[in-house]
């Protein structure tokens, strides 16, 4: 446990578990645990990597990262105009509803989507030195969380214009975010490892994401689906994750079922991710 105690101020080379004479299996587990913990402690690095990536993306643009929010708002406005017309709803009601679902969805789907290539593009680093690989996946989550924060500000402006009334349930956004992020981290880890080993996975994940946006109540309301098909909603973990963030944004309290489902999925997901990572981390450099 000694290596867990070293602080983030110290360089990770100092906290690196020594390659010692323990058996390879012990070595493996020790290093995987070190990777997860130390990687997280290196927040200075992964937040930097994600900030850099953000500013790179919008370098030489006039509005910079505001573009993320602007394009999201344009998309949602036009979609609301059409969909509210189709379903004979009020745009002022529909737009906040759509945005409050679309913004969490964007974060979750982008985490999963970008994780497909994160280890692959880290080849130069992974084959050069030892470092906590999880730095890369934490970076993916951090970057998309940052975009989420951008978008939320845009949402508040729109919501106030549309007359959404916020109440104390808005504070539930914080525990909701923590749960969703905990889920994002394990999803990112599992997806990135599987995509490195099985290149087909990348394609599978991409098409799954495309399907999920329609199967999940983002453009439509969960109670619009009735009977047996309601299972599509109730058994959909992504729906519950979105709900944890969407409800507070609309001045409502999320269903307790959503908290239970998200907590269980975080536990189960972390268990699986931990199992996968401890047994396969040492093989990752071999898979390029």
């Amino acid at each position: 446990m000694e290596f867990f105690k070293r602080g983030s101020r110290l360089s990770f080379a100092a906290g690196l578990p020594r390659l010692d004479r323990s058996t390879n299996a012990e070595q493996r587990i020790k290093r995987a645990r070190w990777d997860i913990v130390q990687g997280f402690q290196m927040w200075e690095l992964w937040s930097r990597l994600s900030l850099n990536e953000m500013s790179r993306r919008y370098k030489r643009t006039l509005l910079g990262p505001a573009w993320v929010t602007i394009s999201m708002l344009i998309f949602a406005s036009i979609m609301s105009f059409v969909w509210a017309g189709l379903w004979k709803q009020n745009v002022r009601e529909f737009l906040p509803f759509l945005l409050s679902g679309l913004i969490p969805w964007t974060m979750i789907s982008a985490v999963v989507g970008e994780s497909t290539g994160v280890l692959l593009s880290g080849e130069g680093l992974i084959k050069n030195q030892q470092f906590p690989y999880t730095v890369l996946t934490y970076g993916v989550v951090a970057r998309n969380f940052l975009i989420f924060v951008h978008n939320i500000f845009g949402y508040f402006v729109v919501a106030l214009l549309c007359g959404v009334i916020f109440n104390s349930s808005l504070f539930l956004l914080i525990p909701g975010l923590l749960l969703v992020l905990a889920n994002c981290v394990w999803m990112s880890l599992i997806v990135s490892i599987l995509c490195l080993r099985f290149r087909d996975f990348q394609q599978i994940v991409v098409s799954l994401i495309q399907i999920t946006i329609f199967v999940t109540p983002i453009f439509w309301k969960a109670d619009q689906i009735q009977g047996g098909r309601a299972l599509i909603v109730n058994a959909n973990v992504i729906h519950h994750m979105i709900e944890l963030l969407r409800a507070p944004l609309l001045g409502e309290v999320p269903a307790s079922l959503s908290y239970v489902v998200c907590a269980l999925s975080a536990l189960l997901g972390w268990f699986l991710a931990y199992r996968l990572f401890t047994s396969k981390r040492h093989r990752l450099p071999y898979w390029f």
């Binding site: 101020r9 360089s11 200075e44 930097r48 850099n52 680093l125 030195q129 470092f131």
Partner: peptide, 12 residues
């Protein structure tokens, strides 16, 4: 800065 940190140095 980035590479230094990747090589294991702290920001400071």
């Amino acid at each position: 800065i980035t590479i230094g940190m990747l090589l294991g140095m702290s920001l400071v």
